[in-house]
Design a protein around this nucleic acid. Structure first.
Lengths: 113, 113
DNA sequence: TCAGTATATAACTATATACTTATATAAACA
DNA sequence: TGTTTATATAAGTATATAGTTATATACTGA
């Protein structure tokens, strides 16, 4: 397989992964800081297994990395990914989620530690 | 629905569309010039309905436009799309298909007019 | 008007995907 | 050690998607 074919696969695979609203938003949320699974579950108001499965896909693709601290597993963008530059450019087009995050921290939901 | 939600939908919808290797490559091929359906069918060595259906999705999303000239329908990138800037940035990451196009034109396949 | 060519659409099928519920694993702490 | 909390995984289901084959539409030129 040529280098070009591999690259095309990688780019389209990355776009397919981020073509899901939940995963795209997760990457946006991780843009500047790590987040634990429980924060993401609260944010999306969905089930914990659903978030875990999305994170698993992002991790398998090397787009995020995990870091366990005690009971919590914190996820962050993986800057070593071959797709890092592409990801950065992509999430620049995703609207900031700051207002929604604020709502959550007002309610005291976001605080794992 | 808030503006942000709409934008998130639009971006993820665009990424989902381009998360398919065929459609991503079509957008790359249309980067600098229009192409008729028959050229794309030859290029991908796949069925005509398959290409037509991919083009239909890209057109429904407003990413490409069509221009009939005689029997042929030429597709090109739609610069008026709200996603145009995103698309431009994305396809910059897709490897050039020039070598493969050369093969085709050598064989005289690409010449609709 | 008819035959040929280019393209689109419809119907069907096979596969992929996302979500749910149930359960397993791992750490914390009493 | 037993309980609680955080997270992952497995299995099942419903929906979405891409491709195929068959057919329809539209243009061209004799």
């Amino acid at each position: 397989m040529s280098f070009d074919l591999k690259e095309l696969d990688e780019v389209s695979q990355t776009l397919k992964l981020l073509g899901d609203k939940t995963r795209l938003t997760i990457m946006k949320l991780l843009e500047n800081q790590e987040r634990c699974v429980c924060e993401l579950v609260e944010f999306f108001k969905t089930s914990q297994p659903s978030i875990s499965q999305h994170l698993r896909k992002l991790k398998d693709a090397g787009l995020v990395k995990e870091n366990r601290r005690g009971q919590w597993i914190f996820y962050s963008v993986n800057p070593s990914s071959a797709q890092y530059e592409l990801i950065q450019k992509l999430i620049a087009f995703v609207p900031s989620q700051d207002h929604a995050l604020e709502e959550l921290s007002k309610k005291g939901v976001i605080s794992c530690e």
